[in-house]
Computed example of a mutant assay.
Amino acid sequence: MRSDRDLKAHRRARTIAVAAVLLAGLSGCAGAQATAGAPEPRAAASASPRPIAVVVERGVEYTRAGGEALLADVLRPDRPSAARLPAVVYIHGGSWRRGTREQGHELLPQLVATGRYVGLTIEYRFTPAFSWPAQLHDARAAVRWARAAAGRYGIDPERIAVWGESAGGQIASMLGTTDGDAAIEGDLPSPQDPRPPARPLSSRVQAVVNFCGPTDMEAFFASASTPEEIAEMHGRLDPLFNGPPPERADLVRSASAIHHVDARDPPFLLMHGTRDEVVPYRLSEAMHRALLRAGAPSVLVPVAAWGHGFRGAEIDRRVLAFLDRHLWSAPIVVSSEPVRAERTPD
């Protein structure tokens, strides 16, 4: 049995040990390095950084067409990983006749929350009031605007990607495969940078993501077989081309990205549902082959056993990997293995 003196000494030693542990914990919270090899699961959890928040600026005018403003929403990380970030311009779908820039808010926040990207989701002119190539002119004006506003939004003007779905994918693919032609570029005004650029602003993009967008408009029109499908196809494309596609063959061909492919094209990521009954999967297969034959980088990712429009965590990861590889030069191999969708777009 211990004496009173031994008990007092034991208690004093234990008090000193507890105080030392508490002091060490406070020092760790203040930023001191932990002892090498010491387990610190609680300290690691408490020291983890807060998630990056997405700051949204809505309704920014990026150009004017026919006296009316065309608007974009800008999504930025509150803690960017660099002073200048790549930008991703999102173009929504809707058969060229409907849709809103709000659709981009379903996909862009996942990219922006990494701290590595600025997102822009745009509106564009619809049919039947505006026929092709008004939609492409709008998208090109948006890319030029992103470059003009690079300083304001922390954008690297040399790293701009475009991401489109369905009709937006067709527009995005045309952005990627056409460049420098005045008829394709359009003449919509661009915002003026406080310091005039040394050379005219370019609408060239450095990467393209196409979700189930038609890249061969002739083959797209011909894919309709039943009377109902043919009627629906005419409803989509007659207003776009200001007449039935067979009667507007030159314009239809000029709106087909597959006919503009060459070795100078930026990298493409094509994602497409293998059971798409609106835009056949084989159109993306043909575009992929055409890009590779021309010497342009392309990855085709099938969305297994899925139709038109898709969402899913693995789909998000595949897009992020592609953009990181081509806009951040990350040493990543972007897999072409099929992915599974989890749901259709909201």
Rank of each mutant, 00 (worst) to 15 (best):
F322H: 04
A38Q: 12
S95C: 12
R264S: 15
C212S: 06
R101E: 02
A231Y: 08
V56K: 08
D73K: 03
R248K: 15
P77F: 00
R325H: 14
S27Y: 09
A224N: 03
F221L: 01
L237D: 01
T215I: 03
A321G: 10
E247K: 06
H105G: 11
F220M: 14
L107A: 11
V208M: 04
S81P: 01
A82F: 00
L237P: 00
D4G: 05
T177K: 06
G243W: 06
D179A: 11
E228D: 09
Q33E: 13
S336T: 08
V252E: 03
L240P: 00
P200R: 09
K8Q: 08
I258G: 08
S27I: 00
V261D: 05
Y62H: 12
A34M: 05
P41M: 14
R64A: 12
L291W: 02
S27R: 15
R147G: 01
G28V: 13
A148Y: 00
P39C: 12
F126K: 09
F126H: 12
R140Q: 08
R147E: 02
P109M: 10
P86C: 07
L269H: 05
P331L: 03
R76K: 14
G312V: 13
D78A: 03
D4P: 10
L292I: 13
E158K: 09
S223W: 10
L23K: 02
F241I: 10
H260P: 13
T100W: 07
H234W: 01
G164F: 13
A129C: 00
V54Q: 08
M1Q: 06
P41H: 15
A44H: 12
L201Y: 01
T344A: 15
T274K: 06
W145F: 11
I16E: 15
G235V: 08
D73H: 08
A24N: 07
A146C: 13
Y124H: 11
A286M: 04
G99S: 05
R282H: 15
H92S: 09
R97E: 03
A219V: 00
H10N: 05
Q33D: 09
G164N: 11
P244T: 12
R152L: 13
P128I: 11
L283I: 04
Y90P: 00
E106S: 12
A53N: 15
E123N: 11
V162S: 01
Y281C: 01
G28T: 13
A150R: 09
I155S: 05
H308N: 06
L327T: 04
G176Q: 07
P214M: 12
P244K: 12
Y90D: 03
F268L: 10
F211W: 13
P338K: 11
V279H: 07
F241R: 07
A305L: 06
R125W: 07
L70C: 00
G66T: 00
Q110A: 14
V339T: 07
P194M: 10
P331H: 09
E229M: 06
A65P: 01
S95N: 14
P214W: 01
V162P: 02
G169V: 03
R152I: 04
R12E: 14
W163F: 14
L240Q: 01
A148G: 10
D179F: 09
L107C: 10
R84G: 00
P109Q: 13
Q33Y: 07
R101M: 06
L269C: 03
V143I: 13
V333P: 02
R98V: 10
A17R: 15
L240N: 01
Y117W: 11
T100Y: 11
I122T: 05
V319R: 09
V208W: 09
G99L: 05
